[in-house]
Design a protein around this nucleic acid. Structure first.
Lengths: 218, 218
DNA sequence: AATTTATTTAATAGACTTATTAAATAGGGT
DNA sequence: ACCCTATTTAATAAGTCTATTAAATAAATT
């Protein structure tokens, strides 16, 4: 913790804005390169302050990263809870969830890489997050599980385990954001082209999942 | 290049084995942690030699990494060329390709992470590899494209772009290897359980793709 | 105006990095 | 016995990194 809580308005010229400035710049850099390839010097340079100030506000680089990572990860999962109060059919709601999840990724394109990177490389963060998911999303998972398996019993959906389906969905939604740097390298897309590419890919990802869930023909 | 080509048998106690030893240890470490989190000191320690020796044989850390990465990446793509001489139906061959690809990943579980990591973080390597893919796999791609679009015309397969299908396949095949560390954190699997998990997941990945390709019911 | 408190900086400790150097070592060929 | 050449090491240059320190600065409070 910084000693920021007891602080009121700005003191210095830039004042307490600098803390936010550092946080923001750190976020951009961490999203782009991951924890270990960003130095506190990089962050300070981008934020326009002395390197020691980064440590003054956040004490350690790890601290700073945790805050950012935790927030992004929570956002990444939160989306799955949406549309549950609607009375539309299960598959319609599932489609909407997927689309909302994809749209969130469009706004935060580097999240998948950041999460993959840190989940694989850092055991401590991995364990923390697994605990976090387990504690905060168990109910959501159970509801989803119940609904899905009911639909399968009714014959509306091909038999599939709940975990497999969730993995499939995440997989189909994140892959394009992993491949985006490669495609950009190859084809020199401009912004409009990328937007269009993502629009098409979103459609394809959703379609693939929905098609894969169709029950067998008799 | 090292000055190794003109060398004949072993001179020293361990002799020329040490070059292989270094390469092997570097491979394991790079696969586990990626380029930037492994130091030449780490490699030397693991290989049981002086740190300078790593540079003696491979001059730079970049050199050493390139060799390993290139080999892994080639292997990762090569699998897609298999079964093309068989006269089985397209979908059967496609299924076999996917299974072979998944089996390769089972034997090299860290490849997906390594590739993702370096493709996103290192623009130079990304560009090299894109060129590499483009030059060496264009014919394979065109063949696959032609066959797929023919099958779609015949109504045997739901309409889908070739690139989308390839992305779907890679996506479904690699995701479990990305998530494996997370699942291991959560459930403390032993080796047998992981083998079983991968067997099930392989089936599900293939099934999802094949189901997603079924044409619409009339 | 003087004091307190918060913000910011320069300087630096201490540990790590890659890569290069020159020197040591050990076998093969003559 | 000697030299040659490949292998291996110790030492080190030059740079990075995180984190801490004490000092400087500026605003708020008295």
């Amino acid at each position: 913790m910084t000693n920021k809580e007891t602080t009121s308005p700005l003191r210095h010229a830039q004042g307490a804005n600098m803390e936010q400035q550092i946080l923001q710049c750190a976020e951009e850099l961490f999203l782009e390169k991951g924890f270990s390839l960003v130095s506190t010097t990089d962050i300070a340079k981008k934020a326009g302050c002395n390197q020691a100030l980064v440590h003054y506000y956040f004490r350690t680089k790890e601290n700073l990263f945790q805050q950012i990572f935790q927030a992004k990860f929570t956002k990444f999962l939160y989306i799955f809870t949406t549309f549950d109060d609607s009375d539309e059919p299960f598959t319609t709601r599932l489609r909407k969830k997927m689309e909302a999840h994809f749209d969130l990724l469009i706004e935060n394109r580097q999240i998948p890489f950041m999460i993959i990177n840190e989940l694989i490389l850092n055991e401590k963060r991995r364990n923390n997050l697994v605990k976090n998911i387990y504690n905060n999303n168990l109910d959501i998972y159970r509801n989803f599980d119940r609904e899905l398996q009911e639909e399968i019993k009714k014959g509306n959906i091909r038999p599939i385990s709940t975990l497999d389906l969730l993995i499939n969905i995440v997989s189909m939604n994140i892959i394009i954001f992993i491949l985006l740097p490669v495609l950009e390298s190859q084809f020199n897309f401009d912004n409009e082209e990328i937007t269009e590419l993502l629009r098409l890919r979103k459609h394809e990802a959703v379609e693939t999942i929905m098609c894969s869930l169709r029950p067998e023909k008799k």
